[in-house]
Amino acid sequence: MFDHLERARLATLPTPIEDAGRPTVGGPRVWIKRDDLTGLGGGGNKARKLEFLCGDAVARGSKALLTVGASQSNHCRMTAAAGARLGLEVHLVLSGDAPAVGEPRRGNQLLSEMFGAQMHHTGAAESHWGELEVVREALTDSLAAEGLAPYSIPIGGSTAVGALGYALAFEELIDQFEAQGSMPRAIVFTSSSGGTHAGLLAGRAALIASGRLTLDSAPDVVAIGVAKGVNLGLPDVASLANDALALMDLDATVDPDDVEVDPNWMGDDYAVPTEAGTAAIAWAATTGGWLMDAVYSGKGLSGLLGLVASDRWGADDDVVFIHTGGWPALFA
């Protein structure tokens, strides 16, 4: 399904799955899929997307990568690392203001600086992604005029090409569970820009179409929405998944009814911490030594723990949480 596609080998794969036990008596067994250990630039889910995005960029002859994100964007940090690995110039369009003169960068910005990225601060609020995309488009035109043939990546790397990374990750996860003689009832993860979600649904549809899984045996794909857009149905995840399936040359379809987003764990807004998220971060740290952040993975885990507490799954079920990374933001 993937051999005909351009791919830059950037991630350390496969990532392990770890047993997190049963958070509630009589509840499901929870597993952590350690996509915080993808290796590139401190790890995280974006390494999988960047393998296909950067493969496409190199094939097109691009000399620069350009993307956008919040002030502590994990995606931007990892794009900077990918550029360093591949010898490409990297430009990052970020929310918020630049640090004051003499003030050091922290967290993901510090790492992006170490990887050699050029940062363009917009002053925009963390959740005003439209403003970032306007600047990205203008900067893309400017870099093109300089002859850099920039490869311009929307927020989160959430394109059909980027989604291929999680179509492949779905197959990897199923391989791991089949090897230990089990099958998860559900895959739960954090979603903000929709690309990881689309990729997982594309991978699920691909394995059903191949006959490897059935509709009854295939795990549910449950997104915990942490941004207003994805909670309102933007982008169109099913459409993005189907575009990814088309790139895979597969006659398979994701139906809009396959898309499940739980909007109850975002709190007031994107990047605003919640009490449940803070409690989930503490649970992860004390249960397995897992590091999660308040913007993304911590809120996603709070959603999983909340669904477990509501008895959505029973004692006979296995549920996987994909740990998408984000630990550098803890140091900001």
Rank of each mutant, 00 (worst) to 15 (best):
T159C: 09
T159Y: 08
T159G: 11
T159K: 12
T159R: 12
A160G: 07
A160H: 12
A160T: 12
A160M: 13
A160E: 12
A160S: 15
V161S: 05
V161T: 14
G162K: 12
G162F: 09
G162L: 07
A163R: 15
A163E: 11
A163H: 12
A163F: 14
A163Y: 14
L164I: 14
L164C: 09
L164P: 08
L164M: 07
G165I: 08
G165Y: 05
G165E: 04
Y166H: 13
Y166T: 07
A167W: 10
L168A: 15
L168K: 15
L168E: 13
L168F: 11
A169P: 02
A169Y: 01
F170L: 02
F170S: 02
F170Q: 01
F170D: 00
E171V: 10
E171Y: 01
E172L: 10
E172D: 11
L173I: 13
L173P: 07
I174L: 03
I174Q: 03
I174E: 00
I174Y: 00
D175F: 00
D175K: 00
F177I: 08
F177V: 13
E178W: 04
E178D: 12
E178C: 08
A179W: 00
A179I: 01
A179Y: 00
A179N: 01
Q180T: 15
Q180W: 03
Q180F: 06
Q180H: 09
Q180A: 15
G181S: 09
G181K: 08
G181D: 03
S182V: 11
S182K: 13
M183R: 15
M183T: 14
M183D: 03
M183A: 13
M183S: 14
M183K: 09
M183N: 10
M183L: 13
P184I: 05
P184G: 10
P184S: 07
P184N: 04
P184F: 04
P184Y: 06
R185C: 02
R185W: 02
R185I: 07
R185D: 01
A186S: 14
A186N: 07
A186R: 10
A186Q: 08
I187T: 05
I187S: 07
V188L: 10
V188G: 05
V188Q: 10
V188R: 12
F189I: 02
F189H: 10
F189C: 03
F189D: 00
F189V: 02
T190H: 02
T190F: 01
T190A: 08
S191W: 01
S191A: 07
S191L: 00
S191K: 03
S193K: 11
S193G: 12
S193Y: 08
S193D: 10
G194Y: 09
G194E: 04
G194T: 09
G194L: 10
G195Y: 13
G195S: 13
G195D: 06
T196R: 13
H197D: 00
H197T: 05
H197F: 06
H197W: 04
H197E: 01
A198M: 12
A198Y: 12
A198I: 11
A198E: 10
